[in-house]
Write a protein that binds this DNA or RNA. Structure first.
Length: 883
RNA sequence: GCCCCUGUGGCGGAAUCGGUAGACGCGACGGAUUCAAAAUCCGUUUUCUUCGGAAGUGCCCGUUCAAGUCGGGCCAGGGGCACCA
């Protein structure tokens, strides 16, 4: 009997997260607290986390991502902003088709089932999300609008259809993205990927290259790293395009253009090289079987990074030669070379072995002369021979001594010299300055079923014809089969058949669908009015840009660059007035975990591992068998390494608040966080601790309604508590503003520690003021905690009988006057090392502090009767005595 | 090869403007409570120390009254881009 009673008592004294969390989620839902009205008062704030791909279940990375966004959303709400915080699904893509092929389940069914699962998982996190705006990109209502956008882009000449080289998987019979080609093989089929020339649809992102680059400067709330990566990706370079004349015309060519960023090395040219795909090379190959074979051979060898690195520089001497543009009478041989890319510049170069590593390698192999055009300023001796062993490639800023330069070429320093050479070339009609970008147009055609159909029609009479807007949406057919590899739309008996929108005759639909990156390039705009009959409405201009966007660094280039392009294109098509979609961007780190491996090299799940010891002496063994287990490196959670922790398990065992709290503690949000069982338990202990402090306080102060309205002279304990509380409010507010969640967490811990020792039952019994102040302090604490652990905050709020819910109340405010101390302790340094403390009034002037400093024992000892050489007093900070 | 980031206790990290290095958490150790345990509470926890102190933020040098923080040169780890002419 007594055992049962004790047990019941203990259970009652613990916070029951399962029942409590559900209760408060229901309460928020009932009040429709997080549904956002586009026309609600208050300054707008749009917080968005990158929407998930519905792969099956959420993982810890999602928990971290959405916990961060939720802190921001709840914090801004509490500050009185009209907050938009929506959620949706990036739902098209290959995994659904792979599942269809493997498990004979329709991609739509598989996708929507996953969405249902993941939605309920996300809801169990207690996120302050407006679920009424939810959509999936595979919803007809969404992709219908995307098709409308496509037609508008087409109308504005932002889309083009052209032939391009793509990765073709001959087994799966589809184009693969570069990321899906691993070591030259298809990631799914394992087949050798071929380069195929196919006619594809492209978005003309290169039209915006300069704008996309320039505007990066204005994105001051983006990580520097992401801006740099985008700038590098766009890859702007300024150089010289110039024509080289053939000594004798060949196959109708009398010369060809080259592009160089180092025209200052022109005098050092010793050969010419063109890409195997260059029109001249192709023309020559018609009559030259050996050259044709050479071209095929070089392109057969892999395109992977490693292979490239090892690949030898290979050239084929065409027998042709060109006139040297700055050395009259001299000629240069023309090679077809494997290291020249048709994609960049003009697909042709002049080789300058003295100042370029690749050209140097080539020249040594094919025995071409090495002619320097400049040498280091400190070089002594024979200028012409110093680059024999390796090329000299100085930074553009380095001063050099010029040699072998033709008359009339400016020989200034670095970039100036390059610009001057371009001017010189232009004046002498040798060529002209050119800006080149590395950025390529965005190929969006995919030979896939599970994507947004491209709304165009192929008519024998009229050619490629855009579908009429009134015929949209072009809906994906349901009855498709995945038994045969390739695109089911191609094989569908009737779907392709249609009438030409122009002539009305029989025609065929485009069977390519759009890259899924198109879907995610404008979803943030759609959230502002998700049910509108047009892609966007006025609401998009009202809400955008997204004030705070949060997601993984892996999207630094693709998704974020495409979205920036889309905002511009949508502007051109009259759908949006905001050029930059994301005003603030934050890229969070991954969730990582130790890996465990048994003696046979099998990965072991964390749940089956027991660990003993600490530091270097940590040892692991199998929980059941006791077999020794090797503790491996800490890596990103992945199914293949079995180092995953399922959010569902954690939420069930510890509650959503614990999971959220742990994800935001300890590690700075931009860095990786290591998941540990101990850390999760620690977070859970804190949840219990807060609840216990509040319940005990509530129990102790229940009978003190009489204190209301009474004026009590505050004791020192009361004042200290008040000051600590206001300091915490100031600190946490500042930290959340800067997304320093880990620092905010630490400050909340400090306040809880202070409260825990201040609000002891006996102290409160002696000091009635503590009860009044304690309540005020706890109310502030709950306000601070609410964005992080919303369920716990509501439960404690109710325990204190506070009106309404925390989620309906304002962010706590602090009184700056209370942050000031009456007395402060200054560190006293002697020769820069701290040797003593000095307690003075906070407003003490320099003279007072100086006098007090000289009386300190440590200072007297150091002075040994003498005078300090120097006495530095920084009021409010430090004192330094120099002896 | 080019570009970028990061190095602080046993561990994650804090130090926001050049001004007390190690906040806060985890782990560990000691104690209280308990028949016992869990839970909880109270301590200790950078290193060395002759208990007075001394040293200390990857390494070396510099600027400064004062450097984790600024400058120069290294070392180590991580990331991005890459035959881009």
């Amino acid at each position: 009997m007594s055992d049962t009673a004790t047990e019941t008592h203990q259970n009652a004294a613990r916070y029951d997260h399962q029942a409590t969390e559900q209760k408060w989620r229901a309460a928020w839902d009932e009040h429709k607290l997080f549904e956002t009205d586009n026309d609600a008062p208050g300054e707008k704030y749009y917080v968005l986390e990158m929407f998930p791909y519905p792969s099956g279940r959420i993982h810890m990375g999602h928990v971290r991502n959405y916990a961060m966004g939720d802190v921001v959303a709840r914090y801004r709400r509490a500050q009185g902003y009209n907050v938009l915080h929506p959620m949706g699904w990036d739902a098209f893509g290959m995994p659904a088709e792979n599942a269809a092929m493997k498990n004979k389940v329709h991609p739509a069914e598989w996708t929507y089932q996953n969405i249902d699962t993941m939605r309920s998982q996300l809801k169990s996190m207690g996120l302050a999300i407006d679920w009424s705006r939810e959509f999936a990109t595979c919803d007809v209502e969404y992709y219908a609008q995307q098709q409308a956008l496509f037609l508008d882009f087409l109308d504005k000449d932002l889309v083009t259809r052209k032939s391009a080289k793509v990765n073709w998987d001959p087994v799966d019979m589809t184009v693969l993205a570069n990321e899906q080609v691993i070591d030259g093989k298809g990631w799914r089929s394992g087949a050798e990927v071929e380069q195929r020339e196919l006619t594809q649809w492209f978005f003309k992102i290169t039209d915006y290259a300069e704008d996309l680059l320039q505007s990066l400067d204005g994105l001051d709330r983006w990580p520097e790293k992401v801006r740099t990566m985008q700038a590098n990706w766009i890859g702007k370079s300024r150089g010289l395009q110039m024509r080289f004349e053939l000594t004798e015309p060949a196959k109708g060519f009398d010369g060809f253009d080259i592009y160089t960023t180092r025209p200052d090395t022109l005098a050092g040219a010793s050969f010419m090289a063109i890409a195997p795909e260059h029109p001249l090379a192709k023309a020559l190959a018609e009559d030259d079987a050996a050259l044709a074979e050479f071209a095929v051979e070089v392109r057969k060898s892999g395109t992977s990074a490693e292979e490239m690195e090892k690949a030898e520089k290979l050239g084929y001497d065409t027998g042709l030669s060109v006139k040297h543009p700055v050395k009259p009478g001299e000629t240069l041989p023309v090679y077809v070379a494997n290291f020249i890319l048709m994609d960049y510049g003009t697909g042709a170069i002049f080789g300058c072995p003295a100042h370029d590593q690749r050209d140097h390698d080539f020249a040594r192999k094919y025995d071409r002369p090495i002619i320097a055009t400049f040498v280091p300023t400190d070089h002594e001796g024979d200028a012409d021979t110093f680059v024999v062993d390796e090329p000299y490639v100085p930074p553009k800023t380095e001063t050099v001594n010029w040699i072998n330069q033709p008359a009339g070429v400016a020989t200034a320093t670095g970039q100036e010299a390059i610009d001057a050479t371009i001017d010189w070339a232009e004046q002498n009609k040798l060529g002209e300055g050119q800006v080149q970008y590395r950025l390529r147009d965005w190929g969006i055609s995919r030979q896939r079923y599970w994507g947004c159909p491209i709304p165009v029609v192929h008519c024998d009479t009229c050619g490629v014809v855009p579908e009429k807007k009134e015929n949209l949406p072009i809906v994906l057919p349901d009855d498709v089969d995945f038994e045969t590899p390739g695109n089911p739309l191609d094989r569908h008996p009737t779907w392709r058949d249609c009438n030409c929108p122009k002539c009305g005759g029989a025609a065929k639909r485009e069977t390519d669908t759009m890259d899924t990156f198109v879907d995610s390039s404008w979803y943030f705009a759609r959230f502002t009015d998700p049910k509108a009959a047009e892609p966007t409405t006025k609401a998009a201009n009202d809400w955008l840009a997204v004030d705070q966007y949060i997601g993984g660094i892996e999207h630094a280039i693709l998704h974020l660059l495409y979205s920036r392009f889309f905002a511009r294109a949508m502007g051109e098509a009259g759908h949006l007035d905001v050029k930059e979609p994301f005003a603030g961007l934050f890229t969070q780190g991954m969730v990582v975990h130790e890996t465990y491996c048994d003696g046979d090299g099998n990965w072991i799940e964390p749940a089956q591992v027991k660990i003993a010891g600490e530091g270097n002496s940590r040892a692991a063994h199998h929980a059941q068998s006791g077999a020794p287990i090797e503790i491996g490196s800490i890596e990103k959670m992945s199914k293949s390494k079995k180092n995953v922790v399922d959010p569902d398990d954690i939420i069930e065992r510890f509650g959503a608040d614990t999971a959220r709290w742990f994800m935001l503690s300890d590690s700075p949000p931009e860095r990786d966080v290591i998941w540990t069982e101990a850390g999760a338990e620690g977070a859970h202990r804190f949840v219990q601790r807060v609840w216990r402090i509040v319940s005990e306080f509530a129990a102790n102060s229940a009978d003190d309604a009489s204190l209301e309205g009474q004026t009590i002279e505050p004791s020192k304990a009361v004042l200290d508590l008040r000051r600590a509380t206001h300091k915490a409010i100031a600190g946490v507010t500042d930290d959340i503003e800067k997304l320093g969640f880990n620092r905010a967490v630490a400050k909340i811990y400090e306040l809880v520690n202070t409260l825990s020792s201040a609000l002891k039952a006996d102290a409160m019994a002696k000091d009635a003021g503590l009860k009044v102040e304690g309540r005020a302090s706890l109310v502030s604490l709950l306000g601070l905690i609410a964005p992080f652990m919303p369920h716990l905050a509501e439960e404690c709020w109710a325990l204190l009988n506070e009106p309404q819910m925390v989620a309906q109340t304002r962010w706590p405010v602090y009184d700056p006057d209370l942050l000031k101390e009456d007395e402060i302790t200054l560190p006293v340094q002697i020769n820069g090392k701290k040797r003593a403390d000095l307690t003075v009034a906070a407003d003490a002037d320099k003279a007072t502090i100086e006098a007090a400093t000289l009386t300190l024992d440590a200072v007297q000892r150091a002075l040994d009767g003498g005078q300090p050489k120097k006495l530095i007093v920084v009021p409010g900070r430090i004192v330094n005595v120099v002896v």
